Computed example of a mutant assay.
Amino acid sequence: MSGEEGIGWARPARRVGPNLPWRWLPANTETLVPAAHHLTLILPWATLVMSAHATGLTRLPLCDWELVALRASFNSGGWSEWQNHVFFARLLRRGDAYLTGIVEGPGAPCWDERAAAVLSAVDELHDGSAISDTTRARLGRHLTDRQCDELRMVTGIYELIAMVFSTFAPPGELINFEPRTVRALTARHGARRPRPDKPLAPAAEPSPPRPKTLSVQPDTPPANAAERAWLPRDPTVLTALARNHRRLARLLVSAAKRGVRLRLSEADIELVVQRTVWRCGPVGEWRARAAVDPEVARVVGQGPDASGLEPRRAALMRAVDELDTEFFIGDVTWAALTAEFGYDVPRLLELCLLVGHYRAFAMLLAP
């Protein structure tokens, strides 16, 4: 997979830029690039994320939030958010040792037990969408259950942001806020990728008990394409979200019910979501979707390299795999999707958001 080096992470070559010359835009405004290509999708999604901050996703202390944001952005190559939070850390007068510790990880000597536990949890979620028993016990000495759930969601959100901006933003920013020592360290460390494939084995473990249905869940099966795309089929997912974040769960349901016009076909959406869930979990969501569409589940289980598979479907699954491991779509896959199969930028943006969306669900329901 080709990419640009020099900041600690591989990044795709410039593919999509703003309409204005980049030199006329302020620094770190690459967040506007994807929005300009799909306003009907980005604005509701951004509203949902910002509303979550204002209506309940606020129990995680700021010091922990910053650790999660910085480490998750570093792990996933989220250059834009990394720079923004480096700038914020410097405003808070965090020294070079703080940022160096973020790059070196939970084993850095500058961290106390609480910070090391938070960083270990972020790393484990990045590597396998789950937190080990040892790390959960360490977190339990410092965070409540609700704060631990928020840590999972915040990790997923920042890795989703990394996917979108790494795929669609121009490769160069005007301002680098890193101190020189940290800049040199990030270039030496490189990325923590690749993440391994994590295929599920639905028959290997019993189905979890179905929880009592909460009011945040739709009363009827998803009716429109947006609901079918963004709402999980397994009620366990929304129940877990609603357990401590009922308002956030309601926002998610209402946003899906309003219906954003999606450009990906329903068949493509189901293939992308099932492949993401097959790789990341949760198991209950995989079972629910495989039961509704077993033919797609069979294709997903075979993978993009299966013999006789339609090339377009293989390219879509390969894009999902690359987003999950590299956090951007590789050049070969990008070229195949755009030039050979005619996928435009808005549809590829939808693909990125779908993968990140269900990866965040997997982190929320991880052990």
Results as ranks from 00 to 15, higher is better:
227 E>S: 01
177 F>I: 00
176 N>E: 13
218 P>L: 08
233 R>Y: 06
238 L>A: 02
253 V>D: 01
154 V>E: 11
228 R>L: 07
262 L>W: 05
218 P>F: 02
267 A>W: 05
168 F>I: 04
175 I>S: 04
213 T>I: 15
255 A>P: 03
212 K>V: 15
256 A>Q: 01
154 V>M: 12
178 E>K: 15
189 H>T: 11
262 L>E: 05
186 T>K: 15
257 K>M: 10
266 E>W: 02
143 L>K: 02
253 V>F: 09
192 R>H: 12
141 R>W: 00
162 A>S: 13
255 A>Q: 09
190 G>I: 03
238 L>R: 02
250 R>Q: 13
167 T>R: 11
170 P>M: 03
181 T>D: 12
169 A>Y: 02
150 E>C: 05
190 G>F: 02
224 N>S: 12
144 T>D: 00
171 P>K: 01
155 T>A: 10
207 S>V: 15
257 K>S: 12
262 L>P: 04
218 P>M: 01
255 A>L: 09
215 S>D: 15
157 I>W: 04
263 R>P: 07
259 G>N: 04
157 I>P: 05
233 R>H: 09
158 Y>A: 01
197 D>L: 14
193 R>V: 08
264 L>R: 00
241 L>H: 04
174 L>Q: 14
228 R>E: 07
236 T>S: 13
229 A>I: 05
215 S>K: 11
145 D>F: 08
243 R>I: 04
166 S>I: 06
259 G>Y: 02
235 P>T: 03
235 P>L: 04
194 P>L: 13
216 V>S: 09
169 A>T: 06
154 V>C: 06
250 R>C: 08
249 A>H: 04
142 H>D: 01
172 G>W: 14
238 L>E: 03
244 N>M: 09
249 A>R: 03
184 A>Q: 12
266 E>H: 07
175 I>T: 14
198 K>Y: 10
187 A>D: 08
246 R>Q: 13
234 D>I: 04
252 L>N: 00
252 L>M: 11
220 T>M: 11
178 E>D: 11
250 R>V: 08
195 R>I: 14
140 G>R: 02
171 P>I: 06
200 L>A: 09
212 K>L: 15
258 R>N: 02
266 E>K: 02
255 A>D: 02
268 D>F: 01
242 A>Q: 01
249 A>N: 06
175 I>K: 09
146 R>F: 01
232 P>M: 08
149 D>N: 08
170 P>E: 00
148 C>F: 08
162 A>K: 02
152 R>S: 02
213 T>V: 15
147 Q>H: 03
217 Q>P: 03
223 A>E: 14
196 P>R: 13
226 A>N: 05
162 A>T: 07
207 S>P: 09
161 I>F: 15
196 P>D: 08
156 G>F: 04
157 I>F: 10
205 E>S: 14
233 R>F: 04
249 A>S: 10
222 P>W: 07
188 R>S: 09
246 R>K: 13
249 A>I: 03
209 P>S: 09
261 R>A: 11
196 P>H: 03
209 P>C: 01
